[in-house]
Design a protein around this nucleic acid. Sequence first.
DNA 1: ATAGTATTCAAGCGATTAGTAGAATACTGA
DNA 2: TCAGTATTCTACTAATCGCTTGAATACTAT
Lengths: 221, 221
Amino acid sequence: MSFKHELFAQFARVGKALSNANRLELLEFLAQGERSVEQLSKVAGLTVANTSQHLQQLRHAGMVSCRKEGLKVYYRVSGDDVIDLLGALRAVAERHVTDVQHLVATYLTVKDDLEPIPREELLERVRDGLVTVLDVRPPEEYAAGHVPGAVNIPLGELEQRLEELGNPENENREIVAYCRGPHCVLAFDAVARLRERGMKARRLEDGYPEWRTAGLPVETT
Amino acid sequence: MSFKHELFAQFARVGKALSNANRLELLEFLAQGERSVEQLSKVAGLTVANTSQHLQQLRHAGMVSCRKEGLKVYYRVSGDDVIDLLGALRAVAERHVTDVQHLVATYLTVKDDLEPIPREELLERVRDGLVTVLDVRPPEEYAAGHVPGAVNIPLGELEQRLEELGNPENENREIVAYCRGPHCVLAFDAVARLRERGMKARRLEDGYPEWRTAGLPVETT
DNA sequence: ATAGTATTCAAGCGATTAGTAGAATACTGA
DNA sequence: TCAGTATTCTACTAATCGCTTGAATACTAT
């Protein structure tokens, strides 16, 4: 009978790792690919020491692994099952925590208007050459892996680099934007801006990590 | 940008619900079906007040719902996505927390010897009438739902009621036992005992909640 | 060696959490 | 109405958690 108790205690250790907003944010960044402690601390707005401590908690919970290269230590999620877990967590929060629905409704009012496109559908259209895929994440994240054929224009440079997207002969070609995940605001923003310019733009239903773990093809460099 | 932070804070609320061993145990029982506060407190070995408090935390995280009937309040998981989340948590713990592997190896040394059978395979064999399915959970849980055609013999009564399983004309008929979930010891025990008697017994890979949420047929009463 | 950099460790604080115990609430049946 | 029962609420304590600060470690380049 103590076996059972021990087992639940170990499961709870993984649960604990998920019980803090900053750790979840770190995990989401790690889901994009390998990152150093310093990068992570910047992006999450935490001190380096604090970030390091969170990362070690995640490591004890078996959710991330690390590798040392020279001075730097690079962390990564330790398997696709971790990304699945994050997805399941998100799903429950979205469906059952009314505050999340409220938040999403408040900040992403245009959510339904953006007509998100499912992964499989996008893949088909890419194969048929019907769409231009736009990756609005920072170049480092794009370099670590992206949807095949996607054009990388970080959100901040979108306005200046519009011509990279447009095909003069076919100005109504559809653009599908994606970013880090289903709640990342980058893609929402991009679609809104493109539409302001009269372009036909939609959003991928989720982000790059989900694309990759779904076993769909990816491209690097 | 505060949107993002708020969102992670809400996800963390769900994570917090998963961060305590007792709450996870309560959730596992709830995954079997509806239960009153008193039942839950008994089975988890907690005081009623404490159980009630845990349940309310789970409710605020949107993981359980409740319904009042007369004096009693019945709790239940608020959707199949919650069961998926528990499964994902278990999967990560099993694959990455070495202590879990150690625990399982120590207490369930026979795990591999029991040749667990996957859900789909069992369903086929049941259809072909090749196996006898044995549900070793308590009668209340059996009544709330079980694998079609399964015989219910709680573990404690197994030795006395062996004849309900055996077919005199075909003593080598295979028996597949299942219980609450992949780490519940009931089915392990049952298989071990049946094998001691020279019977051909195996274990279902996971338990009843997983069977049900996989969309496989269930039977009640 | 030495200086510089990335990360981890250790100690300490305020805030949060798990649990207990006892009172309060809500409902049922006599 | 009143007694009995299931659940929830309200303090309260001990333990844990998140974060900060400053020192320690590990590695690189000069």
